[in-house]
Design a protein around this nucleic acid. Structure first.
Lengths: 214, 214
DNA sequence: GCATGCATACCAACCAGTTGGTATGATATT
DNA sequence: AATATCATACCAACTGGTTGGTATGCATGC
């Protein structure tokens, strides 16, 4: 109402509406339990629109993983810790940001990728591969800083890539704990253990976190 | 053939057959994607038998989590590392066992609990609570050894419970990496990072792993 | 005027759960 | 020892509703 052309107003937006709905629904309920009908209802479009943009439900899953990468990637890229000079300070900035994100309601901080990868690694290799691309791509943005910090501080004995992936593993596992326990406390503890691991590896005391302002 | 009474031979076993089938199917495909019909077909029983033993599919999910705790709990309880004198050696024995379990095909080493908790934490609080009981109960068996090791070595600054749960988080996250990547390598790296964290916390060098025989 | 973007209407397969019934074994009664 | 009674364990067939997916029609913008 007030809008003389109800359909025309959102024409061309169905795809994005569906992907945004997919992010919310699949994160909360999982991929298999999220039906196409429900996705359409949440997005406010019809099934015709769905199958116009995605040939199958699986294709939406792949696109949702890609969409997730873009949305979260933009968020992390805009975070202020990137401006820090010391690469190790950037690494701790990342860890502190991840910790701060774990706070409110569980559906808001958990990860689409971990949820989908669990369900689909057998039934849909295409979605699992998209999840791998998303998580590995994100890990690589951290890997560069880790590699620079290792070189600067003379830390060796493992690869920067493996530590970046380990960081993702801890976060994914922390989300599972939060979901099973119905609250973020255990997840926070786990991220704090991860931070302590970095402090021990790079031989800094816990005070490194105090120059948070760029 | 050879068995004169075909039906009587497996009478009374339907419940266990269904739970064993649930462990395999849900681990591979997830809870939502595993249908009651498929469970019955895999178990070799009919739907009538299913709903005789479980009022709903959700009740089977809860029972499956409990069954998983019993099966895996017995396996860990029988592991030889429990005979070691030093509690810290038992902790490393646990970590090395977990690492060794991550080897062959992915469906064989991944965890039912993490898979179910992800999917059901919103749609089925009963299953999520059962997952919490399973994972927390398992963590407690490790927590005792961690607490003793912390006391013996004068390690402090965090709780034994949080470190035991962190260990579970790393393992769960490692399983997600393995599923997304279609292989165990990243999961192994992550467990190795976890082991290094324990070595740094308890100030032992990497050679602690060499007295593996009780 | 014609491709794009979407809506309506529909379908076969599948879903969790129900029904009415049977085979079996334990206990009670005679 | 034989029979009656009953609860348990299970089965085959079915139900209403939901699933992912399709066929077709129409409005919009280039």
């Amino acid at each position: 109402m007030g809008n003389t052309n109800q359909t025309g107003a959102k024409r061309g937006k169905a795809r994005k509406l569906l992907l945004d709905a997919a992010l919310d629904l699949i994160r909360a309920k999982g991929y298999a339990a999220t039906s196409v009908d429900e996705l359409c209802a949440t997005a406010g479009v019809t099934k015709g629109a769905f199958f116009h943009h995605f040939p199958t439900k699986e294709a939406l899953g792949v696109a949702a993983a890609c969409h997730w990468s873009e949305v979260t990637g933009a968020m992390f890229a805009a975070a202020p810790y990137h401006a820090r000079q010391d690469p190790l300070a950037r690494v701790f900035g990342y860890l502190d940001l991840r910790r701060d994100l774990i706070a409110g309601a569980i559906p808001e901080f958990t990860c689409l990728i971990g949820t989908m990868a669990q369900e689909t690694h057998v039934s849909s290799p295409a979605i699992a591969a998209a999840c791998d691309r998303s998580i590995s791509g994100h890990a690589q943005t951290l890997e560069a800083d880790i590699a620079a910090a290792m070189a600067a501080r003379g830390v060796a004995g493992f690869s920067a890539a493996s530590l970046a992936l380990h960081t993702q593993a801890v976060l994914q596992g922390a989300f599972i704990l939060a979901k099973a326990k119905g609250g973020p406390e255990a997840a926070l503890d786990s991220v704090n253990h991860l931070r302590r691991y970095f402090e021990l590896l790079f031989k800094v005391d816990g005070k490194e976190r105090n120059h948070d302002r760029e």
